[in-house]
Amino acid sequence: MWPFKKESAAEEEAPEFCRFLDEDAERLRDALRKRDWETARGILGATDPETRSYYFSVAASTYGIERWITGAEPGAALPLLIRGAALLTSAWELRPDGWTGRISDAAAELWTRWVSQAAACIDEVTTREPGWADAWTWSIALSRSLGLPLDERWRRFHRLIEIEPDHWYGHEQMLLALTPKWGGSSEAVFDFARTRAAACPGTHIPALVALAHREHNAHLSAVREPDNPDRSLELTYYEPTEITDDLWEAAQLSFWHDDYETTVLTPIVWNNFAYAFAWGDFHKPAWALFDSIGEDWITRSPWGDVEFFLRSRDYTRDNLE
């Protein structure tokens, strides 16, 4: 399934983000837009756990889904968890800077309402289906949104990895649960990322180290300019040797590892390392990743916009020897 290379002469035409990592994800989104729950449920029932967790994240990020999904199949756990996840996703838009940002009284009330509605859904699902990894992923996400103590966030994470030790989305949520803006610290984030990377060699998980650096950089930027909604990240952050070394080791444990298998989520790993390597002046490995990404597997995160992706890629190409 992997078109690693697709030589295109039409370099002039700007590429687009790949909105979905496979065809069924796109079908899923289209079905959910049409409120076609039959089709959507079929796709969400994928047998491969990683693919299933990816499809779940596609469902949860469908805007407006929280308004109708539980009516599609009353009493069922899957729509209930989607509703909880979608409510949290909506709520996070109100607090882009976590607990540290400013929020109006009216929005804080709305936040509280959505998060408690999400809690009702997610808590019910973890009770009913304690062996379901996605439920624990969103239970971790809920824990930071409720401002629960860190040991409770850890407890939920441990439940998750008992079931699925290398669940990408659950790890991503735990990393966020440890960030300074949600009541944790950068030390805790780095420690978590490195520890889990070491525990899960040959998987996507070591890419958490790249996420950790990006979160830390975003944190530094937020501290510098707390009130600027348009603040940007300082790209020179990636230049020091200790940071490039850290990322190098993480890459060795991940997509460079002998046991690493390319899967549906691999473009997430490529894009995050490409970003970090490009601005860490690791031109050759960055270029190899840009080559793998090609025009087809550019994910919105971490670039934000296509112009910045192109700027990063051009910078890498111009510095190749």
Binding site: E93, L94, R95, P96, D97, G101, R102, I103, S104, A106, A107, A108, E109, L110, W111, D227, P229, D230
Partner: peptide
């Protein structure tokens, strides 16, 4: 426009839509 991107502003407008 940057004013409208401040979370304390956009959030209050969102809450108004919900009221």
């Amino acid at each position: 426009k940057a004013y409208l991107r401040r979370p304390e502003v956009s959030g209050e407008i969102c809450a108004a839509a919900h009221t």
